[in-house]
Nucleic acid binder design. Structure first.
Lengths: 120, 120
DNA sequence: CCTATACCTGCAAAAGTTCGCAGGCTTGCA
DNA sequence: TGCAAGCCTGCGAACTTTTGCAGGTATAGG
């Protein structure tokens, strides 16, 4: 059954695309809606060239969509749900080093500005 | 606020770990419960050495746990929910090439042997 | 038409990942 | 004690990714 292999390769490509801290921050940055390259570069404190390079990769796999207005290129997430799904990975990260307390996940979510999913 | 940067690096490490087709298949293979290295190697049709190398990476980030019984090393997912979350990525993969039909996600889920989440 | 802004691409060095292979350790069994 | 099964690690060659930089295109405005 080779389709299983194909699907796992497609998924691996997606994970490879997300396996970069700056691209993850970029995706979280687009959670609020579309933004132009300079705007992203400023809020992530990265050179605009690098942001552009990251966007080219995300674009190639259709994770973002582009809209041009004059000299500005505005980008948005193709799947707004993506950013949320990324944060659902927080329970799986190894938290030995830095976030030792029990509610590290809510702490991290708060850092991203995401509302707590299970407010008690 | 440097913690945001830290979290994005931790997440990127996780995504990098998942950015390999064989490791994804391995994780899906462990969905059914614990399994020894030779068993995994056989069901994925990979040399046992390579499986061992992948497991070492997954172990280093605590994605799998080991239990030894005699000469055999049994591995299981530290977070059984991980395999399910991985499959939740299917809506985000670019399906231009191979799976053109509307219900490609259910098709792919079926290929992994996962029950449809929204049976109608 | 000239210049500046905003962005993109190509390139090459540096850094990181994968994979086979050789060799090692431990357990089970005769 | 000796041998085989099962697994692990170290190493180096091949490959991929990241990054800065140089140079390109397109649009807006004077």
């Amino acid at each position: 059954m080779p389709s299983r292999l194909i699907v796992s390769r497609e998924l691996a490509d997606l994970f490879r695309l997300l396996a970069h801290a700056d691209r993850l921050r970029l995706i979280e940055d687009l959670r609020g809606g579309e933004k132009d390259v300079t705007g992203i570069a400023q809020s992530l404190d990265l050179p605009a060239t690098r942001v552009s390079q990251h966007l080219a990769l995300l674009r190639a796999q259709r994770l973002v969509e582009e809209r041009r207005d004059g000299r500005n290129h505005f980008y948005r997430l193709s799947h707004p749900h993506l950013a949320e799904w990324v944060l659902d990975a927080l329970p799986f990260i190894d938290i030995r080093q830095r976030l030792e307390d029990a509610d590290h996940i809510d702490t991290a979510r708060a850092l991203w500005g995401v509302p707590d999913r299970n407010p008690h």
